[in-house]
Amino acid sequence: MESKKQWNEGANSSISMVNYMIDDKETKISALIVDDDAIIRKIHKTMLERLFNIEAKTVRDGKEAVDLCRSGENFDIIFMDKEMPIMDGHEATKHLRAMGVKSIIVGITTRADGKDKEEFLASGSNHCFEKPLDQAKVEKVLQEHGNFSI
């Protein structure tokens, strides 16, 4: 049977390229999913792990994300929901940047009107997408930051 790497070398899709890049590294890309919705946590975690070979952790609100990073955990990418109890995504992003967190932060919102996007970008996130977070949006992030160190 062909090895995964051989198959990836022959494939053109960006997912394959991402997997190929990851296979050649000693460590996987790591991601944190921050969302108060159990459905979204489950879908995003499964998508990142299955389609992109990304190691994903989940937390339920912005405060948990801040506490986790403060405890010394590092993530290459943080997928941050906007509306959450205790601490929302915009506040959490500000805290993380103030702490010196260098992760790629991707804001996720239910609003298409641009207000949330402005807030997210102003607070230090790299991207902001409207829900749902799908394969194409994750690919876009990975392609734009293909050179980030992991």
Partner: peptide, 15 residues
Amino acid sequence: GIHLNQFMGSSSSIG
């Protein structure tokens, strides 16, 4: 509005 945001988010995530 908070309840609706949650409903919107989960609905869009399952299609």
